[in-house]
């Protein structure tokens, strides 16, 4: 019979904190948000560097090959993941939204084809446009909705066509 132990360790964290009222909590969160806003000013430069890195890595890919080097795909995934993580954190949620599509595709499909490479290229181009125009928020208009919904569908259908799930 498998031996399984379940126990409740004493929480050192709970012993070290003290309760504060809602107003103090709101102020602490607001102070953190204010700090985050002060960091936004530097983000476009970092984004440009990341995008340059992403484009340079993507250039090494042969767009017509169905047998891409794993290290290159890994690098594209990692850079896209960084961009996704930083974008919204620094006030650029649209950047995160688009970069996430690249991550989802690369993280879901075991063998990347030339079709996938084209999908990635479209997303990198879109990231460049967003970065160039310093578009921070996700524009709340019909055309943007259609574009982003279209990109989502491309990713979803591609994954679905291979009988994979995210």
């Amino acid at each position: 019979m498998t031996k399984i132990q379940i126990f409740q360790p004493s929480s050192s964290l709970a012993k070290k904190v003290t309760l504060v009222d809602d107003e103090t909590t709101k102020n602490a969160i607001k102070q953190a948000e204010n700090f985050m806003e002060t960091q936004e000013i530097n983000y476009p430069t970092w984004l440009d560097d990341d995008l340059k890195n992403l484009k340079n890595t993507f250039k090494k890919i042969n767009p017509n090959s169905n047998n891409q080097p794993k290290n290159l795909l890994n690098d594209i995934f990692k850079i896209s993941l960084e961009i996704k993580g930083q974008g919204g954190s620094y006030g650029y949620p649209l950047i995160s939204y688009v970069a996430d599509n690249i991550c989802t595709l690369l993280d879901s499909i075991p063998k990347i084809s030339s079709k996938d490479i084209e999908i990635i290229r479209i997303h990198i181009d879109l990231l460049s446009i967003i970065a160039k125009n310093r578009i921070k928020d996700i524009p709340n208009n019909q055309k943007t909705k259609q574009i982003l919904n279209g990109l989502d569908k491309i990713i979803k259908n591609r994954i679905k066509s291979l009988n994979l799930s995210t």
Binding site: A28, I29, Q31, A32, N34, F35, M36, Q39, N42, Y43, W46, G85, Q86, S89, Y90
Partner: peptide, 13 residues
Amino acid sequence: HMRHLIKGILQAF
């Protein structure tokens, strides 16, 4: 950059 951001948030807390 992300490390600095998280640190600032925690300090604000």
